[in-house]
Design a protein around this nucleic acid. Structure first.
Lengths: 341, 341
DNA sequence: ATGAAAGCGCTAACAT
DNA sequence: ATGTTAGCGCTTTCAT
């Protein structure tokens, strides 16, 4: 049977209220009483009942985190950042998984928003999940990390994909590359379009034209990158055009496919063609050659999202509709200075 | 402002109690009333307050899961299994991270056990964390997955390390190997000792002596495996003894070190020496050659632990002190039939 | 078939 | 410095 305030009050010979004040560090209690109460609480092994406290205060001092699944670097780093911020600001984190099961989103949102947590941080690493309906009448502050949520306009924290793409293309330009191909991601994903725009901007910024013939459609998958590269090489071949000296793939996974296809074609990476990816997934550092790429600031994204939520709970402004954080270039061995074919 | 039972009752022209009964599917309500209440609840966007319900019932229908951090395969798979079981049995899962920070264990245990959850599932992938003190007076059912917890005797669910080691050694024996070396893990970790025992049993079962000179101390790390192998080779060399034709490393990470050292010595894997690991970490399939190893049944461990806890909550027996689940052999390319040197 | 009363453990607001 | 009262939103028990 759990120990209650009443138990301590009886033991210590004071009222419940006095015990409550002592345990919450409120003023207006004599040192003697305070000490006595603390000792009895300790002795009895008192543990505050979170449900009762939440019910009485209307606050849980807890941030809810909704993730599709555990085990991906994306999720774990975002959560780590959020945990850091929450801990620093005196809140706790409660994580709930949907395990990718459709329908679980709504269920989990309902449960968490029913007094378990004060605000919701939703991590959307890839897919466009369907939290929107349940969120409609969740009257808590919500911030999404990762992807635009369809329908419902929720505050979003994301990587500055355009800046990242500028970084990648800029790196290739710095290495002397002038013919730089781009393998897109999925056209329906916002981030993919932004990465493409960043690529274009970087080229134009360097006074180079954006040659549509150097842009091929991938789909973020390894086979997608492979086939896109094949298509590209065939297209250039047919047109009697020179090969690119560098390829920028919209993500790391498709970059692996790009490298595969280039080798199939007898080209060396980075000897003949440099390749750069985006995301910095764990495998990026383990393939050969280790992949130069752009890293998303995941812990920072979680941290910023958590801070916004907590600020909001403390009377601050509503989280801005869109916050983008700058990614960083991760130099490895798949890019090298241009050497003309 | 959240909608309460009272709001629905007022709108629907009934009492709070009637609404409560309808929402919980209890009998003794006319169809008409039931329908009317359900409609208003829907319309108002009612969402049960978990804190209030927990306080009133004394149950939260939620399982608490304590993990050191996210992002490791170990944790994510165990949680996936636990989630599966919990969902199937009508409970929810709430995950809390300690982010490896000492002291957080106690804090988190206190919070969760204070009415937030009905039972606790602790995932201890590697270190011997310090949950014990806080658990002392947590009056909830607790099961630990992974490692023996120091001091406090808590119900444990783990891999059958000994059976796994027998599997590994048995595989090598099946391939014709007779001189099989063993690189230990950390002596202070129970699992390491069990893996060593399994190795010994397998050899003895095959009528082979256990040669102490073929057993060297590692520490579960890659450098540890590397140095252990060096030591082994030097020792055999000095004694004029033949080299082993196979090495069983107490875990995958140290197996990588073993392979490194063997190659340094001019030996090919698996051409000259076969190497087998334990754990099946993600890298195991990505190194060259892909590592043959033993896989722990992680989702099953989570599932079994969750089921025990839930059974207990429903009046079943206390979880047994120790439950071990059988691992499986994962055949890859680092082992091959014996070819005499 | 429905409702009234009481209480889960805690705290806010107000006495004393 | 301490205690009393009331109530958070829900469910249990017992009436009607």
């Amino acid at each position: 049977m759990p120990v209650t305030l009443q138990d301590i009050a009886a033991q210590a010979g004071v009222s419940k209220m006095t015990v409550s004040k002592v345990l919450n560090g409120q003023p207006g209690i004599s040192e003697a009483t305070r000490a006595r109460v603390l000792t009895t609480a300790q002795k009895l092994g008192y543990r505050a009942n979170a449900a009762a406290r939440t019910l009485a205060t209307g606050r849980s001092d807890t941030l809810g985190v909704l993730v599709p699944s555990l085990g991906t670097q994306y999720v774990s780093e975002v959560v780590r950042g959020a945990d850091h911020a929450a801990t620093a600001l005196g809140l706790d984190l409660l994580i709930s998984t949907t395990q990718e099961r459709p329908g679980r989103e709504g269920h989990n949102v309902s449960r968490l928003s029913g007094g378990l947590v004060d605000a919701l941080l939703i991590v959307l690493p890839y897919a466009l999940h369907d939290y929107a309906p349940a969120l409609l009448d969740a009257s808590l502050p919500v911030v999404v990390v990762g992807n635009e949520s369809p329908g419902q306009p929720l505050a979003l924290v994301d990587t500055d994909h355009m800046a990242g793409a500028r970084l990648a293309a800029g790196h290739l330009l710095d290495l002397g590359h002038r013919r730089i191909a781009f393998v897109t991601g999925r056209p329906d994903v916002q981030a993919s379009a932004e990465r493409l725009r960043g690529y274009g901007e970087a080229l134009r910024g360097a006074g180079l034209p954006v040659d549509e013939r150097l842009i091929v459609d991938g789909d973020y998958t390894q086979p997608g990158g492979f086939h896109a590269t094949r298509t590209l090489l065939a297209r250039l071949d047919a047109g009697g055009l020179p090969l690119p000296t560098a390829v920028f793939a919209a993500n790391d996974v498709s970059a692996f496919g790009v490298i595969e296809a280039l080798r199939d074609h007898g080209l060396r990476v980075p000897g003949d063609v440099s390749v750069i990816g985006f995301d910095d997934i764990p495998q990026a550092s383990q393939v050969h050659p280790p992949l130069t790429t752009v890293r998303q600031p995941l812990p920072e994204m979680g941290e910023v999202a958590a801070r916004m939520l907590i600020a909001r709970l403390r009377g601050g402004p509503a989280p801005p509709p869109r916050t983008v954080l700058p990614p960083t270039l991760v130099l490895r061995a798949s890019t090298a200075p241009r050497r003309p074919h």
